[in-house]
């Protein structure tokens, strides 16, 4: 009886500590735009992805000097407004997007690299102002956040519209690696 009670207590504590490390994933749809936001909190860090609809991406970059044919590959590359925020991690975190992974159809790879897009824009000879707007509108390829620090920026997974995927974000605090995962995220059409 005592050992059974002990086992129950251990299981309850394990469940509680697990809840503390990773909160349940939430999903909300914006009633005006239809865009969906997926959010989770893991190890004191909030991660969220909000769909940027292809027409929203087109409008944003067309208004910043991108030719229509240039913007199309990006607008249809499954783009998200991405937020990562250090709410209460055990110290300053650092991350590189090359360590994040997009899992889809049995394959795993990092999100599209910002530098790859920039090489494309340079090859097309886009105006400097357009290139600067693109570069700094993207979620940072690498960054450090103390508690309370965060960024919001665009992140392209490179998947086709309508695709489903999981995203694992990884960061380190004092040399220790942590991760947060969003599951069954859907690319806007």
């Amino acid at each position: 009886m005592t050992s059974r009670l002990f086992t129950l207590c251990v299981a309850a504590l394990a469940t509680l500590s697990g809840l503390q490390a990773t909160a349940a994933q939430t999903e909300k749809r914006d009633p005006d735009t239809g865009a969906v936001t997926w959010e989770t909190r893991a190890h004191g860090v909030t991660l969220s992805l909000t769909q940027i609809l292809p027409n929203q991406a087109r409008a944003f970059y067309l208004n910043r000097g991108f030719p229509a044919e240039a913007v199309e590959p990006y607008a249809t590359a499954c783009v998200y407004m991405t937020v990562l925020r250090n709410d209460a991690a055990p110290g300053e975190l650092s991350f590189r997007l090359t360590n994040w992974s997009v899992q889809n159809a049995g394959q795993e790879r990092p999100p599209n690299a910002v530098e790859d897009w920039m090489m494309r824009w340079r090859a097309l000879g886009l105006a400097e102002a357009a290139q600067i707007a693109f570069r700094w509108a993207q979620f940072p390829p690498e960054q450090e956040y103390a508690v309370g620090e965060w960024n919001q920026g665009m992140l392209a997974t490179g998947l086709a519209p309508g695709s489903r995927f999981d995203l694992t974000a990884r960061w380190t605090v004092a040399g220790k690696t942590f991760e947060g995962k969003l599951e069954n995220v859907v690319c806007a059409r």
């Binding site: 969220s48 929203q56 409008a59 944003f60 508690v147």
Partner: peptide, 15 residues
Amino acid sequence: GFSSVAADLPPLTHG
């Protein structure tokens, strides 16, 4: 307008 795609905007912090 795309900036308000989320129903809830991420909170501004204070530190």
